[in-house]
Each structure stands twice: as C-alpha cells, then as structure tokens.
Computed example of a mutant assay.
Amino acid sequence: MPAPRERLSFSTPYTRAPLTAPEGIRLIVWPVVNVEEWDINRPMPRQVSPAPGGNKSVPDVPNWTWHEYGMRVGFWRLLEAFKSRDIRPTLSLNAKVCETIPEVPQAAVDAKWEFMAHCYEQMSIHAIEDPAAMICQSADILEKFTGTRPRGWLGPGRTQTFETLDQVGDAGYDWFGDWILDDQPLWVKSKTKPLVSLPYSVELNDITIMVSAPHRSDAMLERARDACARLLKEGENSVRVMSFGVHPYVSGAAHRIRYFEEMLDYLKSQDGVVFMQGNEICDWYVRQLPYPGKT
C-alpha cells in the first residue's frame, strides 16, 4: 500500500504556481469544531484527570464526564460565539452523536454548519475491525441526519493506515484533513479518485495546546495572532489557509471561552482574511488547479 510520499509529489508554496482569491483575500481561515462520542465502556480517548496511583479503570467516569460537559455546556458556548459573529464552521462529528445526543448536531444543522465525517465514535482507526465499512457508515448516518452527504473526512486523532485514503476515495469523499504537511491544499492520489488534502492544524488545536501540554487559557489566542500575521504576509504572493481545531469540552470551558471569542474577533477584523468551510476551500482550489495539475 502507498505511503504518503507515494501519493503526492514534493512541492512548496514558495515555488509552486500561486493561488489567488478575489477582493484582496490573502488568507483563508478554516474553523473546525470537533464533537466526539466517547464510549464509557472503553478506556477514554483522552484524560484530564489522572487515575489515582496511575491505575486506569473502566468505566472512567471522571474523564467521561469532562467530555460530557462539552455536550451539555461547552458546545452551546461555541455555537453562540460563531453565530453572533456570522461565522459558519465545519463540524467534525463522530456520527454516533446523531443517535445519542441529536440536539447537538441539530443545532449545527440549524446554524448552517458544514458536516465533516469523523469516524463513528472516537477511537483510533487502527482499533476498528472494518475501517472501510465504518468510513461508509459515518457518511450514511450524517447524510440521513442532515440530508446532505459529507464530502470531507477527518480521521479520529487524524489516524490512518496505509489503506485509509483508498477507503476514503472508495466511499465517495472529495477531501480529507488528516495531513498537516502544508499551508495550502494539495492533490493526493487514491485508488478510486484523486482527493484534495486540506491543511488542518495540530498546533492551532486546543487538544495540543490545552490538554497535551497545558498552557495558559489565552495561549491559543496568541498563537492564532502570530500565525495570522505571518500567513497574511506570505499570502501576498500566494493565498494561504489557516485552520484551527477546537473541542467543546476544552475551548468551551468557562475560563477559555473569552479568549476563543477574542480570537474570532481578531481574525475577523484583519484585512485580507475570509472564513470558509471545507467544501468551499476544496472547490476554490480545484477551480484554480484541476487534477492532474502539479502537486
């Protein structure tokens, strides 16, 4: 099975054909909200409360309830932050949430958020018995719930096997966000069809900043300002894409939501910045560089 470097050729935004956007746009911001389903009968995907004595247990009620706070409280803070600023993000959704807490995805439908498939429930793709079936199942459930089949895929924790992209192509998706290797979209080969890799972020992501390495509550705001400044400058020659990923149980916490709102306000106030959903970014890229353009 092809490794990533066998699916795309090497290039760099500093030398490849420039990407342009209308009306002086230099930077496209792609906001992503990740909503996950954690099965209380398995070890939790993440922990904020270490087990006493390091003895992990199932059920892990303390960490499961941390995640549940996101469903009950944090998500609704994020929803209001986006809605009051007329920003429509991409919802990266474990499809099982449509079955367990439909109020959350229904609110996203009502707010005209875009849905991106994000596994059936949160677990490494390597632990799934039939990943190809799960990738199709996720799209089927989201299509039934929203009335629109998702075009984008994001693996749980961005995990992939060497077969994953072929399975994503087979399932009919057009783009994916698992690879964090560029500041611009890229064409990627799969067995069935070419896919577009959208530049997601692991460093402008509240899990990396606030959970993996707990920083101050305003750390993501500061990173976003710095990244925006540099990418806007580089975007004078070729438009860049800046994504960020947030989770309701992290950025939706009472001590962080203020800084998340300030981050949105800062990005929205910058000349040359536009917010887009994943499908819009994919279509913008494909119009300028149809496959098999140089990657």
Score class of each variant (00 low, 15 high):
A3Q: 12
R5T: 08
E6M: 06
F10R: 11
F10M: 14
S11G: 12
A21W: 10
P22Y: 11
G24R: 04
I28S: 05
V32L: 14
N34D: 15
W38K: 02
P45Q: 05
R46H: 12
V48A: 13
A51C: 01
A51M: 03
P52Q: 09
P52I: 07
V58D: 03
V61S: 05
P62F: 10
H67G: 08
G70F: 15
M71A: 13
R77G: 04
A81H: 04
K83N: 13
S84Y: 01
D86V: 05
I87V: 09
R88E: 10
K96W: 07
V97H: 04
I101V: 14
I101T: 14
P102T: 07
Q106Y: 05
M116H: 06
A117Y: 03
A117I: 01
Y120I: 02
Q122N: 09
M123P: 02
I125V: 11
I128Q: 01
E129L: 11
A132K: 00
M134A: 13
C136I: 10
Q137Y: 09
A139Q: 14
L142M: 09
E143G: 08
K144Y: 09
F145L: 10
F145N: 03
G147V: 04
W153F: 15
Q160P: 00
T164G: 00
D166H: 00
G169M: 05
W179G: 01
I180C: 12
D183S: 09
Q184T: 05
P185K: 12
V188G: 05
K189Y: 02
T192G: 06
T192V: 13
K193S: 14
P194C: 08
L198G: 01
P199K: 02
S201I: 01
T208L: 09
M210C: 12
R216Q: 14
S217I: 08
M220G: 01
M220H: 07
L221Q: 03
E222Y: 14
A229F: 13
N237F: 13
V239G: 05
G245R: 08
G245Y: 03
P248Y: 10
Y249I: 09
G252N: 06
R256H: 10
E261M: 09
S269N: 10
D271C: 06
F275Y: 07
E280D: 09
E280I: 03
I281Q: 04
Q288Y: 13
P290F: 02
Y291M: 04
T295D: 12
